[in-house]
Design a protein around this nucleic acid. Structure first.
Length: 649
RNA sequence: GCUGCUGUAGCUCAGAGGUAGAGCACUCCCUUGGUAAGGGAGAGGUCGAGAGUUCGAUUCUCUCCAGCAGCACCA
């Protein structure tokens, strides 16, 4: 038998017969390691302890102390254990797939009866029984025909389909948890008892399409979370509870920012406080755009179908458009219009007025463009995914050879804005050519290369979204995260070869001939609605002072201080601070609590002492201690804080 | 749009086949109190909408609307 050499992390090399398993290697190293071992990394691949190793390799044996590997195994085994529990309770249930995801796993089932929340308790109980049995985990490699026959006999059509979808005729790995069997890539633990029985929880039931295809069966998905110890589970559940408190829908109510109602689903009624944030943010973006060489425009809301037919939206996007038909009796003629779902075609109309020269390029055109999209009902989410919203939209008309430099300028522009808004870290995703697309491969090559190299030159390595680009060009997405870790695309930067063609945009080149400009679609905050939602969640309602809708409440402690309170408020207002008086006949405790709940960043309490000394007692949101300071000093500090970051000296 | 769940006062929620309740918020009165809820009184609801079953429905059934979680969607 051939000999192989396995090298341990400490550099120690050991020699074995080929086909030895990591489990046997662990046993050879020490008895205690054999007991604690859960899996191994063999030349970078995560190996089951039972898999044979056939060639020289670097090897590291893992125990429960190796968090990444342990989590993966625990979650993966729990997926199998849950599926087994479900089939033991409801034997007519068909199993499908159950992958490991962030913090846990899910498994999709096909069963006529819906699972109920009470069922989750039943399943959890059964899972704990299975764990307590310490059933061995076995693995075998089968050929396809045998596996297909096996699942056909069992009446598991989804498994058969999965096998058919696995390319080539690579052998299939079968796993047993006790008597229960599943098709699985592995690796797994050695027996069910290795799964901590007190560190997992079934979280929710939801529908999910088989193979992610909305034309196929709707399965029932059960989500679970799991960790290597119960403290970690508790910490996770705690984190979720805390995150729920940051939900922008809850804070929006508590801070009196906005509301939504049935008569206008997916649209926002901005209250004075919320609109303050909105306009403050918009002013900021507008100043940045001016500084960045943009011209600002404004275009119509209701636009005749003809333009949408020409742009291609009528064909491709119609079911997402609000159609406005004007009644003949009230109009000169019957007209079919659409509320604009995006601004680009309108911007091309402005570009097309007059004759453009290559000297005009790059032309950076911006609009706070209000758009209406009939989003599917299930997609709506607070103010983060809505049907009526305003983008900080912009289109850069440029030559093909300017794509890269414009992209670089834009990434810099966006980064600086995000930094000012408190987002130091954001994800960048790069989406390249989809299967169905316009334009030649040569042009796509250049565009993709331009986006990528501009991004990398900015020191950012984007995440790749293969095939996720628009049909008209590749794109960069700038992604921020909400309170519970869901990703939201905010900024975007897309290359477009198609629209200038369809709407016949041209410029006169140096050669005196007509040329087609390239269009770069870009948005930084994306939509004000979504971005403000993210801002609220990111800061848990404690917005940076300059963005806070209510900045200072000056609260009287006794009515003797009323006149001075008014004086303080006036002083602050003159210094550019949003200040208001609270002269109500309430105790200071009450006032402090109420304004703290309302997330007012600064409360200035004023009683007789302050009146006499011309001071104020300063209390900042989230801090217990207060400090008594001269009014002039406080005014200077707050005036500075109230100044937007781009205007500070 | 799909699967499941939910819809009772401004908010958070209880409740029952015989036309509704709590706490907070709101209004008024008392209280002038030193940093997260002082006390009292009062007002407030076509129980999401429509239809059906019933002597009688907010409660049971159906349809619709909206929200929540996930999936699909986000050109």
């Amino acid at each position: 038998m051939a000999q192989i050499t396995l090298t341990l992390p400490d550099g120690n090399a050991r020699h074995y017969d080929a086909g030895i398993t990591a489990g046997e290697v662990a046993a050879d190293i020490s008895k205690s390691l054999a007991k604690k071992a859960i899996s191994a990394t063999v030349d970078g691949a995560h190996y089951d302890l039972a898999w044979p190793i056939e060639a020289d390799a670097d090897i590291a044996i893992h125990t429960m102390q190796d968090e990444d590997q342990a989590n993966e195994l625990v979650r993966h085994d729990l997926a199998h254990i849950m599926a087994r529990a479900v089939q033991e309770i409801w034997p007519d249930t068909k199993v499908t797939i159950g992958p490991v995801i962030k913090d846990g796993w899910y498994y999709d089932f096909d069963r006529k009866e819906p699972f109920t929340p009470e069922d989750l308790g039943l399943i959890e109980k059964k899972m704990k029984e299975i764990i307590n049995k310490r059933d061995p985990v076995r693995t075998e490699v089968w050929d396809r025909a045998r596996a297909v026959k096996h699942y056909e006999d069992l009446g598991e059509p989804y498994k058969v389909e999965l096998i058919d979808a696995i390319p080539g005729d690579e052998p299939l790995r079968m796993y047993w948890h006790g008597d229960w069997q599943d098709l699985c890539r592995g690796p797994h633990l050695q027996h069910t008892g290795q799964v901590p029985g007190d560190a997992f929880k079934l979280m929710s039931i939801a529908g999910a399409y088989w193979r992610g295809d909305s034309d196929r069966a709707m399965l029932q998905r059960i989500y679970g979370v799991a960790f290597t110890g119960k403290e970690k589970l508790r910490a996770h559940l705690n984190m979720l509870e805390e995150a729920a408190k940051r939900d922008h829908r809850k804070l929006g109510r508590e801070m009196d920012l906005f509301h939504m109602q049935e008569e206008a689903p997916g649209q926002v009624f901005w209250h004075p406080n919320g609109w303050r944030i909105y306009t403050e943010l918009q002013d900021f973006v507008r100043r940045k755009q001016r500084a960045g060489g943009y011209v600002e425009v404004n275009t119509p809301q209701v636009v005749d179908r003809k333009l949408w037919v020409q742009s291609g939206h009528w064909e491709k996007y119609q079911e997402n458009m609000f159609i406005v038909e004007v009644d003949e009796e009230h109009a000169r003629e019957k007209a079919v219009n659409a509320l604009k779902p995006m601004n680009c075609p309108c911007h091309v109309q402005i570009f097309n007025q007059g004759i453009k020269s290559y000297r005009d390029l790059p032309l950076r055109m911006a609009e706070f463009g209000s758009c209406a999209r009939y989003e599917p009902s299930g997609a709506l989410h607070g103010i983060m995914r809505v049907r009526g919203f305003t983008q900080d939209d912009g289109h850069i008309f440029c030559r093909e050879d300017q794509i890269e430099s414009e992209t670089a300028i834009y990434i810099d522009f966006l980064s600086s804005m995000y930094r000012d808004l408190g987002f130091e870290n954001f994800k960048v995703k790069f989406s390249d050519r989809p299967e169905k697309r316009s334009g030649s491969d040569e042009v796509w090559d250049k565009a993709e290369e331009a986006l990528l190299s501009a991004t990398r030159n900015a020191g950012i390595e984007p995440e790749l979204n293969p095939g996720e680009g628009a049909f008209y060009g590749p794109k960069l997405e700038f992604v921020l995260t909400d309170a519970i870790g869901r990703d939201w695309q905010c900024g975007t930067h897309q290359v477009d070869f198609v629209l200038p063609e369809r709407l016949d945009a041209t410029y006169i080149g140096e050669d005196g001939a007509k040329h087609r400009p390239v269009m770069l679609h870009r948005a930084t905050v994306g939509s004000f609605e979504r971005f403000i939602g993210i801002l609220i969640e990111e800061h848990a309602g404690k917005l940076p002072f300059w963005l806070a809708p209510r900045q200072v409440v000056v609260a009287s402690i006794t009515s003797d201080a009323d006149d001075y309170v008014t004086e303080v408020v006036e002083t602050l207002k003159k210094a550019g601070v949003r200040a208001e008086a609270d002269l109500r006949n309430e105790k200071i405790n009450y006032k402090v609590r109420e304004h703290s709940v309302g997330k007012v960043p600064v409360i200035l309490a004023v009683g007789n002492r302050e009146v006499e000394e011309k001071t104020v007692s300063v209390r900042r949101l989230g801090q217990k201690q207060t400090s008594v300071e001269p009014l002039a000093d406080v005014t200077a500090t707050l005036s500075h804080d109230a100044t937007p970051p781009d205007l500070r000296g």
